[in-house]
Amino acid sequence: MSTGARGRPNWLAGALTAVWLIVIAVPILSMISWSLQSQQDLLDHGPLAPPSSITFENFAAVMDMGFGRYMRNTLIVTGAGIALTLLLAIPAAYAVVRSRSLLASASFRVFLLGLAIPAQAVIIPVYLIITRMGLNDTLAAVILPTVAFNLPLVVLILSGSLRDISGELYDAMTVDGAGALRMLVSLVLPLSRGSITTVSVFVGLGAWNSFIFPLIFLHSPEKKVLTLGLQSFRQEFGINLPGMMMGVLLSALPVFVLYLFARRWLVAGLAGVGGK
């Protein structure tokens, strides 16, 4: 791209990106700067001034308020969400592509239909089901519906990549005497590592950020996840604006680390939804 007029400065693009840089950077820099100063400092020097001295008291305060516990719960929801989704979706995608069973193709059509169901629109009956199962205020209450609403897209993406596996490879394994299960384990799995990574990142980010299901299902502080924890920080921190911002900053840290060390996966996982 941009081969068109290489060398000539593009003022319009320059202006647009400069404005966008300000739009992105001012909130993020303010957030970081607020979280590193004291409340008094912030009130004395105003929201845009850099901290006059750097303090880590907000970090200690956030930790005291159960941040570690929220983080642990979020990790459980994210990890279990990914694991359960893959456990269900990989065999399903395999069946979609390879099975001749009518049930498999019918299920696939139902999954496609499911792409259009907005999870938010059915929280009332999901609430009914989960409370009747006695799962209210457990992490499972968040994990199970999150996985269910991820399945259609994940099966779609996985089956798309499974189609690229040549039939000859399966035939070859047949000669070896392999059954359907062994083909899944030793052929399909290794060959779809890329798309499995993609969907894992996608599902993981979704679970990491989930808010609605935790909001209606999780009540006790021991069960709350990060997003809810941040919400309760708003109350608990009272007028301590820097404390709140430290919470926001810390909540992004794990994803930031992932971004630093596995940027390609993260971008692929995100862009994977929109098509490459």
Partner: peptide
Amino acid sequence: PRPNFLYI
């Protein structure tokens, strides 16, 4: 061999 409907 192909996976049966049990996979889905």
